[in-house]
Amino acid sequence: MLTNGEPIVRVHNLHKWFGLLHVLRGVSLEIHPQEVVVIIGRSGSGKSTLLRCMNLLEEPTSGRVEIDGVVIEAANGEICPECRSRVRDLRLKTGMVFQEFNVFPHKTVLENVIEAPIIVKGVPKEQAVEKATELLRKVGLLDKQDVHPIRLSGGQKQRVAIARALAMEPKVMLFDEPTSALDPELIGEVLAVMKDLAREGTTMVIVTHEMGFAHEVADRVIYMESGVLVEEGPPDQIFTCPQDPRTRQFLARIIESGRVI
């Protein structure tokens, strides 16, 4: 996809330490509206941490995150005092989908989706329900709206989680290994929903191990290792002729393990 105009996400020189572990070592990244960016890399490379720093679920040790004009700066292990009040603004710009779904078990499917719009944004209930109905139809779960998540499969839970995040009308969707906790036969239904979103022009940042999906849906693929962005480019380039030996090695190992690209 050709993207023009200003980037909607700007990450600049981001560092994250967990104790003595230097997980992010100066990551800079820009994402344009409607762009789909897929981050790949082995576990422990910092992909999830990068994603979680983008909505401040993890506080960066230092560096800068800007999404749609909301800026958070951090230095010496603390975010700046005047940034504190902006953390929620930043989170409202982003929607997150977790590996473990994290749907609210005490609420029905519909209640899961309307909760935040009503409580956080103050949307009137009828309006929230209308929007939720539309989203549940989109993820194919309208018939489950009055059911509690305990009755749902993993794939269905994850689709509820996607609808719940979309209900807040975020500028950027963050997906943190959304299919890694799913039984193989349930992965497809979640990826299908994500493909729809990509087609509609949703700005997405996706951390995943689903290489075939990445190849199909990404505008840009980033390979990450040891807390740095090693290589990035269009999927055809990354998957067919990666430039960096580390990327080549990683992809070779994935192909060996039988995952289709």
Partner: peptide, 21 residues
């Protein structure tokens, strides 16, 4: 679970909303 706090936070809830709801 920790994930419940994170999901609520990611949706922009304040600490009080998270606790109560």
């Amino acid at each position: 679970g920790h994930g419940q706090y994170e999901a609520a936070a990611a949706l922009g809830m304040t600490r009080w909303q998270m606790l109560r709801r």
